[in-house]
Design a protein around this nucleic acid. Sequence first.
DNA 1: CTCTGTGCAAAACTTTTGCATAGCC
DNA 2: GGCTATGCAAAAGTTTTGCACAGAG
Lengths: 132, 132
Amino acid sequence: MKYSRQRELILNTVIRLKGHPTADMVYRALRDELPNISLGTVYRNLRLLSEMGILRRISLPDGADRFDARVDGHDHMVCTRCGRIFDISLDILSGLEQSVTDQTGFQVASHSLVMEGLCKDCQINIQKERGI
Amino acid sequence: MKYSRQRELILNTVIRLKGHPTADMVYRALRDELPNISLGTVYRNLRLLSEMGILRRISLPDGADRFDARVDGHDHMVCTRCGRIFDISLDILSGLEQSVTDQTGFQVASHSLVMEGLCKDCQINIQKERGI
DNA sequence: CTCTGTGCAAAACTTTTGCATAGCC
DNA sequence: GGCTATGCAAAAGTTTTGCACAGAG
């Protein structure tokens, strides 16, 4: 694969933004340093980097896909109030794929687990609002 | 909510088709008995029935959403070779949401777990093809 | 020089929505 | 009759793709 400044900056932007950005978020963040970059290029490279295992694509039940610079085995929690996405790596889930393979005969290669609910901050904020 | 023949048939079709159909599959299956039904109506009612808890919407990493007539707590496995979707309800997963809530403080309300891999049939077929 | 990647725009695909009309109660 | 649901078509949102040109090796 040939080097391109665009691809380098797209990767750096996902790393820099941290909060599991969408393609469009990456695109908008990049326009400061690369005003002519196209959304198509962002999509193309995010797809490429994900296929190479350098990034990870996260599909959420609704809205655009997210991209994660952390590619080790972990899952995600989405706060339904503030929209933030949190990483989670739990012991219970570490052997999950193997367990399912053993118990069902279906040969699991990968999985995607997304939990929805309320993050700690939002739980506290809801408490505060109720106290008013 | 008012009765409608369309909604009744849409629900029946999801139940009848079994294999976790997409909105478009339901639409096409329905056109035999209801030639004038519109795709919009199918989408509207699948959404409505899912929000009422009568159906369950399954978001897969790619492609259109699926609809499941089984609404109890269970998860899904998608075969990457034949595309079929299998239900799975495992003991390990039954207390999952509570475990995560207890261990992280993130209050989990629901989750979506999709495993990708090879179903038994496809594993066998691959073996056979190799044997030729 | 060659071949891959880019920018731009159009297209593909999924899902929602506005509006006039049909149909349930 | 009143109000909800439908059909149709347009729109919205996300992602991919065709093509001519730019840029890396």
